[in-house]
């Protein structure tokens, strides 16, 4: 993730320690994937209470952009910066594979470089990515154009066969009401270099660069 940002934004992201309490004034905060606290208890549950998260939450509430990928999304949900919950995959197993996503919107600063309904291919690698929310929350997400990505098949059809983990409405990523916080389970950073097989994760990073300039 850090590599992808360095390559695609020309800026070197700064790593912060989980016990830090002062983050300065970042352009963007990224919570990358990666088994925080071993995913013990519940994915993201303990990391959500790391000392650094107080500052992340405070900055996010003031409008600093925050992006959470995979475990980062789980942490954002646990902090309630994003709504819903990420349950165990319906297969009850960890799944690593390439999936297709449809950009359900482009009306936010993370996705401005996507065409609406653009289909991209990115990998997932998680055991708890099954997005769940109550009906009212789901309706709110739909009404407010806060669904970022949905799992689909190669031709862009959003159906149960294309749903790798049982997520409600095939939801793979969502936005905060302010549209300044994005959480998604798939890994767009692993679709940004030739050796990774495809470059369809690039528009996400290009959108962020555009928003930061």
């Amino acid at each position: 993730m850090a590599q992808a940002f360095r390559r695609l934004t020309g800026k070197t992201p700064q790593f912060v320690w989980h016990k830090d309490t002062d983050l300065g004034k970042p352009d963007l905060i990224v919570l990358p994937g990666g088994f925080s606290y071993g995913d013990y208890l519940r994915c993201g549950a303990m990391a959500a209470h790391s000392p650094v998260m107080k500052e992340v939450i405070a900055l996010a509430k003031k409008g600093t952009r925050v992006m959470g990928i995979c475990n980062g999304f789980q942490v954002l949900v646990e902090t309630e910066l994003l709504p819903g919950a990420l349950l165990r995959n319906r297969s009850l197993k960890f799944i690593c594979k390439q999936v297709h996503l449809k950009a359900a919107t482009n009306q936010n600063s993370f996705m401005s470089r996507f065409k609406k309904d653009q289909i991209i291919q990115v990998p997932i690698a998680h055991g708890e990515g099954n997005f769940f929310a109550d009906e009212a929350t789901l309706k709110q997400l739909e009404d407010q154009d806060r669904i970022a990505f949905r799992y689909c098949n190669e031709s862009g059809i959003v159906n149960d066969d294309a749903n790798p983990n049982g997520s409600l409405g095939n939801i793979a990523g969502i936005l905060s009401e302010s549209k300044t916080i994005l959480g998604m389970m798939p890994h767009p950073e692993n679709a940004t270099q030739d050796h990774q097989g495809n470059l369809t994760g690039l528009p996400l990073f290009e959108s962020i660069v555009k928003a930061m300039n």
Binding site: F94, C96, H195, G197
Partner: peptide
């Protein structure tokens, strides 16, 4: 079996098990 293993973490996997467009691309 191999779908339960994260074969792509670190982002440097050029070839891993599987068929085209399911894991690493080759």
């Amino acid at each position: 079996i191999w779908e339960q293993y994260d074969s792509l973490v670190r982002g440097e996997t050029i070839s891993s098990p599987g068929i085209r467009q399911t894991q690493a691309h080759k």
